[in-house]
Amino acid sequence: MNVFASLVERLADLLQPLFSTTATAAAIVLFTLLVRAAVHPLSRAAARGQKARTRLAPQLAAIRKKHAKNPERMQKAIAELHAEEKVSPLAGCLPSLLQAPAFFLMFHLFSSGRMAGHSLFAAPLGDHYADALAHGGVFGPAGLVYLVLFAIVGAVATYNYLRARRQPAPVAVEPGQPGAAVAAGMARYLPLLSFATLISVAVVPLAAALYIVTSTTWTAVERAFLYRDMPQAASVVTAA
């Protein structure tokens, strides 16, 4: 945790001439961008893997149909196909898994009181939305900072949702197969989870909210770029 804290503090010192009293907030945003940039190669690999799995969907469907009564043989055949095509079913999870430690360590830092004395304009970085409401209300100085964050998150969530609706995600489970209904439901409602970020921003310290908003925005831009030639692939549900 000390490593992360020291990095944020050093970044804040470097940004002080440009951002003055908001230097720490700017350092958190920059730190988040550095974390996301570090895992971007894995995101690119995950995108390539997702496109490959989509390309292999007809073969996977054939395997499931052929070995419908032999689950063990089905899984073995799917694994062999993935190995032959050099596709990892877990590649899409790696970027999120690697970001998780950084987020939880930073969340602990943000909640430890080390943000005392630092603010984003009128909103202290260690406070929560409830504090902003208690000191000025929704349209108070601190409340307005949160309204801007909510607007950004809402815009990103709406973009993700509409993009998913325009490009329905194919479900890699044949109708009638076990799990087909669950997979179809996930493909339909998963984009709505983007709106849950609004709740996260409201309940975590403002410093952590900055991390979440920056990371969420990066994810939307990154996916739009990586999946530009196959936008529906970002939300594919796989059963392999």
Rank of each mutant, 00 (worst) to 15 (best):
M1Q: 00
V3W: 14
S6I: 08
L7P: 00
V8W: 10
E9V: 03
R10E: 11
L11V: 04
A12C: 02
A12N: 04
L18Q: 09
S20E: 10
S20I: 05
T21V: 11
A23I: 11
A23N: 11
T24W: 15
A25C: 04
I28W: 11
T32I: 01
T32G: 09
L34V: 12
A38R: 04
H40L: 15
P41K: 03
P41M: 08
S43M: 14
S43P: 00
A45R: 10
A47N: 07
G49V: 01
A52M: 11
R53G: 05
T54L: 14
P58R: 12
A62I: 05
I63A: 03
I63W: 07
R64E: 11
R64I: 02
N70F: 02
P71M: 08
E72F: 05
M74A: 11
K76G: 06
I78A: 11
I78M: 14
L81F: 12
E84H: 11
E85Q: 13
V87H: 06
P89C: 02
L97C: 05
L97G: 03
P101Y: 11
P101N: 09
M115F: 15
S119I: 00
S119V: 01
A122G: 01
A122I: 01
A122K: 02
G126K: 02
G126P: 01
H128V: 10
Y129T: 06
A130R: 06
A130V: 12
A130G: 03
G136P: 06
G137P: 00
G137S: 02
G137Q: 01
P141W: 07
G143N: 12
G143C: 08
L144T: 04
V145P: 08
V145L: 09
Y146Q: 05
Y146I: 06
Y146K: 03
L149R: 02
L149F: 12
F150R: 06
I152Q: 01
V156N: 06
V156W: 07
N160A: 13
N160K: 13
Y161M: 07
Y161L: 15
R163E: 14
A164P: 10
R165D: 07
V171C: 04
V171T: 05
A172E: 07
A172N: 13
V173S: 02
G176N: 09
G176D: 09
Q177G: 01
G179T: 07
V182P: 00
A184D: 05
G185I: 08
M186L: 15
A187Y: 08
R188N: 04
L190F: 15
L193T: 15
S194G: 15
F195A: 08
I199C: 03
S200F: 14
A202C: 08
A202H: 09
V203S: 07
V204D: 09
P205S: 03
S215N: 12
W218D: 06
W218A: 06
T219Y: 10
T219R: 09
V221A: 09
E222G: 01
R223W: 13
A224H: 10
A224L: 06
Y227R: 03
D229H: 14
M230I: 08
P231V: 09
V236L: 15
V237R: 07
A239Y: 12
A239R: 05
